[in-house]
């Protein structure tokens, strides 16, 4: 499945709470200037935990196949 999904950030909706970055199992994300950014996209395993725990719906996965 890896490679067929993509991590998308809706920056305007991010409030910088840091939940996604703190609980990312692969340490892919970080908060810069109160917004989430992808620091190491190569490491992302597209588990979707950031999407599940983002209170603001500012980060999510899209299926590239569709």
């Amino acid at each position: 499945m890896i490679g067929r999904k993509k991590l998308v950030i809706e920056e305007a909706w991010c409030k910088g709470c840091g939940i996604c970055a703190a609980f990312c199992p692969k340490n892919v994300l970080e908060i810069r200037k109160e917004k989430v950014t992808v620091k190491d996209e190569e490491e992302c395993v597209f588990c979707g935990l950031c999407e599940l725990r983002c209170p603001d719906y500012a980060i999510y996965l899209v299926n590239m196949e569709e």
Binding site: V8, K15, G16, C54, P55, D56
Partner: peptide
Amino acid sequence: PSDLVHLYMRIDHLPQIWCPGCGNGVIMH
């Protein structure tokens, strides 16, 4: 936003007004 948010939430009301880090957004999701 994601397809799920598009499908089941009123986009014109978002982003929601809960505080940064509020758990309510996660529960609503």
